[in-house]
Design a protein around this nucleic acid. Structure first.
Lengths: 238, 238
DNA sequence: ACCCCTTTGTCTGATACCGTACCGAGGGTC
DNA sequence: GACCCTCGGTACGGTATCAGACAAAGGGGT
């Protein structure tokens, strides 16, 4: 692909690369569309491409043998996939797919791997991202264990809002119920709670953030820790 | 410390190091006792030492601002801490402490870090471990979200049993309740369920595995995925 | 022997969430 | 306009788990 100017890029990891690393990697980046439900990586399969989203949101979902599932993390312009490339692990047991459509860059995993082997700065940068991601997963786990549905929903909306440009996030209740690992009607009522408190507007296929500070206050104990850790490791991404 | 023979070591990561790496690292390993409740690393603090347990079990716990907590993973002779050293992240936001007493080796993190920088094989090995650990965390998250207490308890006993020599695991209900992020009396009744099905014996301060295959069957959907991933990446550890 | 502290067992009522079912509303297509 | 499919709202009974309190049992120290 032609010239990509680093300062015009929105993906935070690409932005944080040293100029030398960026120019090495950018010649191999392809621009790609990332439509909703697009699979970035499938469980137990070695991914052909690594993706660095510019916009949109991707979801990382773990599935049990009997088909139960729960989201363990999300990323957008703050991240990349697959983490397994960074750790030389080949594959991971998760589904990773787009949940809010967007666009971004891709690069063959083989190429990225060889760049990682030659470039300690890059390995270090992506290593820090892997840590941030796994911390996010850990706090998702905590939240699944101890927080009520409406708080978890608030947390989740905030995390999407962080990775979105406006205040509108296009999502169905069905989708949210999968992410939070609850029944679909539970999402409906939880959304009503947030709406009743004037924190959001809820429309067909769409959640609109109305009062972000109040939403953060509502999510309170559920939101913030993993964001602080990301900031410490990689700075702001919005 | 004097000579440590690699084949006599029980920690799986130490065993899997190349002979060259092992001889480089082993001269810096100190033998340490790991009593119950010993803190291997504190949240947001850069650890002074890295630990490779030989026996015993350590717990990784995330804590929310308001003091809620949940375990996100455990390790014993299958692992090491802190993962942050491998990822060059400095610290992580978790408490890591011994839960079943044991012993192991320690090395200064500074030294381990410099070894990692010079030794791609070592970085690769520990990178795969970090992946295994974060997959374990992901499935803990899934389990917190979708499984009942008695299944989660069964899973947890199995994970401890994997890292223990006999069938006896010394643990109080109080402790288990923290790990599973449930009330202490819920642990008591869940243990009664497992005992009633003749899967375990439960004594004061002790859980004894009685019928492991049946326990695995009972845990069914909750147990196995992360173990398979560890095996793929690092082989057997028991 | 006694005391005391830790650990475990049990009870009561409350509640958050589930499974399932059904219906209505929005919005595209012909 | 008529149709259909997706999506959202609501209702009902059932239950896993919670919150909190209290009592009994194990076991070490003096």
């Amino acid at each position: 692909m032609a010239d990509i100017v680093q300062t015009a890029v929105r993906n935070n990891l690409l932005r944080l690369m040293t100029p030398a690393t960026f120019s090495a990697i950018s010649t191999h980046l392809d621009v790609v569309d990332l439509p909703r439900a697009f699979e970035l990586s499938e469980p137990h399969e070695e991914a052909e491409y690594a993706y660095f989203p510019e916009t949109g949101i991707a979801s990382i979902v773990a599935r049990s043998p009997q088909g139960q599932h729960a989201e363990i993390g999300i990323f957008g312009r703050d991240g990349m996939t697959p983490a397994a490339v960074v750790l030389d692990a080949g594959s991971d047991p998760f589904s990773i797919f787009m949940q809010v459509q967007g666009d971004g860059f891709r690069i063959s995993t083989a190429l990225l791997k060889s760049l990682l082997d030659q470039d300690a700065d890059l390995k270090n940068l992506l290593g820090r991202y892997v840590q941030a991601l796994s911390v996010q997963g850990a706090f998702t786990s905590l939240s699944n264990a101890v927080h009520h549905i409406d708080e978890r929903l608030a947390r989740w909306i905030l995390m999407c809002h962080d990775r979105t440009d406006g205040d509108e996030i296009s999502l169905t209740h069905e989708f949210l119920s999968i992410m939070l690992a609850v029944r679909r009607p539970s999402v409906t009522t939880a959304l009503h709670v947030l709406e009743g408190r004037k924190l959001i507007y809820s429309e067909r296929g769409m959640v609109i953030v109305r009062d972000r500070p109040a939403l953060e206050e509502f999510a309170a104990d559920a939101y913030g820790e993993s964001e602080r850790e990301y900031f410490r490791l990689l700075g702001p991404y919005s």
